[in-house]
Design a protein around this nucleic acid. Structure first.
Length: 425
RNA sequence: GUGGGUGUAGCUCAGUUGGUUAGAGCGCCGGAUUGUGGUUCCGGAGGUCGCGGGUUCAAUUCCCGUCACUCACCCCA
């Protein structure tokens, strides 16, 4: 037997109702906020990711699915969405149409990590990119969409944390101070953090090793090094969130793992989730367009891990399936009459099905029961002779008789009535 | 990449201090019920005990290796 690949899951029909609500909510909210969908390739030239995500990040150093094509070009399965969107944006000249443009995407991403709860090698993200505005309102709008998405799905135990990394010169000034501070504590740091001193000192703040936390407890705060304009931007972002009553907390240690972030960064975690509890995160990336060869363009966005959303999704968020009817037709005359009734129901947009392997009323009802059909149409030779059908409510066992020639519309009315009642309830 | 846990029926799991035909619940199939399902009763099918090697008179059980799954570290969504 050939098995699937480690860390790569099938989404089975049983799980699809959850995915449908989640994806429907993503599309609906993104549209409501004025974002347009974009579909970008699932693989790109490796250089795109190396240059955007950063050569010293874990993603680029050890997590990418990279392979040469037949011409020898190094290609990589996308580990995240922003780089591809920005590449498409520059390459297709999407910026020329408007002063700012808002895009979103939904699709699979790939990272070669050790799988565990909430971490897969192929996972799915819903992401948005608000391109072309440096206004704090853009940051606020993106975070609002993020927060509204989670709350409309009723995810429990959420918290939004944010921080400002400032502009490049802010970070450089801070970095000098931080490295000087860390060097006084170097004997207390873990091996990983010692390496970070040279490569990426900010990441030491994010270290989870307890004695590192202790050692960096009194480290200088990046927020104290923000230039007046960076600080003003951050303050206005906070004010915007307050005005919309979006709860947040400031986490001065929040440092994102991708190199392209600047200014605002944020992360939503979900306490219902276990170790991999980051469910959505993002930030501003004003320098990325320039890095990738475009004109300097401010932008802010987020990515949400949909597989993690599914894990945390409460049962109550998934709507009950639409009512439908099972056609139980049997006998020499009943069977063909049932087939044409099936067809007219379907033409009327009523979900209708049967079981071709069952031929007696008993086995047909048994099938209907296993398929959890709320209604069954009983149509045997006797009914055809009397030009009628029996509509059986499987829960109450009530049966009604309808004329055969108008059966389809009678059933339609019945199901519609039931559906409206359910929506009112 | 590093560590821990677990692999027995389709599913969830017992069990064997090493000993003849390896069990339960659920599910599945048939019958009681030849035009009325989900309840009940009766019967039935289904297992290389992950794979390979070792110890032993004898291994599903003990040992070693290996693979898979899983949780955690790391990292991230």
């Amino acid at each position: 037997m050939i098995r699937g690949i480690k860390g790569i899951k099938d989404i089975t029909p049983d799980e699809m109702p959850k995915w449908s609500v989640v994806e429907r909510t993503a599309h609906a909210l993104a549209h409501a906020f004025g974002f347009q969908e974009i579909r970008i390739p699932v693989f790109e030239k490796t250089d795109l990711y190396v240059h955007s995500i950063g050569g010293t990040t874990d993603i680029v150093e050890k997590e990418m699915y990279t392979f040469p094509d037949k011409a020898g070009t190094s290609l990589t399965l996308r580990p995240e969405g922003t780089a591809g969107v920005v590449r498409a944006f520059i390459e297709r000249g999407l910026k020329t149409y408007q002063s700012s443009r808002k895009l979103y995407y939904i699709g699979p991403m790939f990272r070669h990590e050790r799988p565990q709860a909430g971490r897969l090698r192929q996972f799915h993200q819903f992401g948005v990119e608000f391109v072309g505005s440096a206004e704090p309102s853009a940051d606020v709008e993106v975070m609002t969409l993020l927060w509204r998405f989670f709350s409309s799905l009723q995810l429990p135990g959420l918290s939004l944390e944010l921080n400002s990394l400032g502009v490049l010169t802010d970070r450089q000034a801070y970095k000098t101070e931080l490295v000087a501070f860390l060097k006084t504590k170097v004997h207390l740091l873990c091996e990983n953090c010692r390496r970070r001193l040279d490569a990426n000192a900010l990441r030491a703040l994010d270290c989870k090793v307890p004695h590192c936390r202790e050692a960096t407890k009194d480290a200088p705060y990046l927020t104290d090094f923000l230039s007046p304009s960076s600080k003003d931007h951050f303050d206005r972002v906070l004010q915007g969130l307050q005005a919309l009553a979006i709860p947040y907390s400031i986490n001065p240690r929040l440092v994102r793992g991708l190199d392209y972030y600047s200014m605002t960064t944020f992360e939503v975690s979900c306490s219902a989730l276990g170790a991999q509890n980051a469910i959505g995160a993002g930030g501003r990336y004003d320098g990325l367009f320039e890095t990738l060869g475009g004109v300097p363009t401010p932008a802010v966005g987020f990515a949400i891990g949909l597989d993690r959303v599914i894990l945390a999704l409460p049962e109550s968020t998934v709507p009950a399936p639409d009512p439908w009817v099972f056609v139980a037709s049997f006998g020499e005359k009943g069977r063909p009459a049932g087939l044409s009734l099936l067809d007219s129901l379907r033409l009327d947009q009523v979900k209708a099905d049967t079981d071709y392997n069952a031929s007696t009323l008993k086995t047909l009802l048994h099938s209907a029961d296993r398929l959890e059909a709320p209604y069954v149409v009983i149509l045997g030779d006797d009914e055809v002779t009397n030009n009628q059908v029996i509509l059986r409510n499987m829960a109450t066992k009530e049966q009604e008789i309808h004329p055969l020639n108008t059966a389809s519309s009678a059933i339609l009315a019945h199901l519609r009535f039931r559906q409206t009642r359910r929506n009112i309830d």
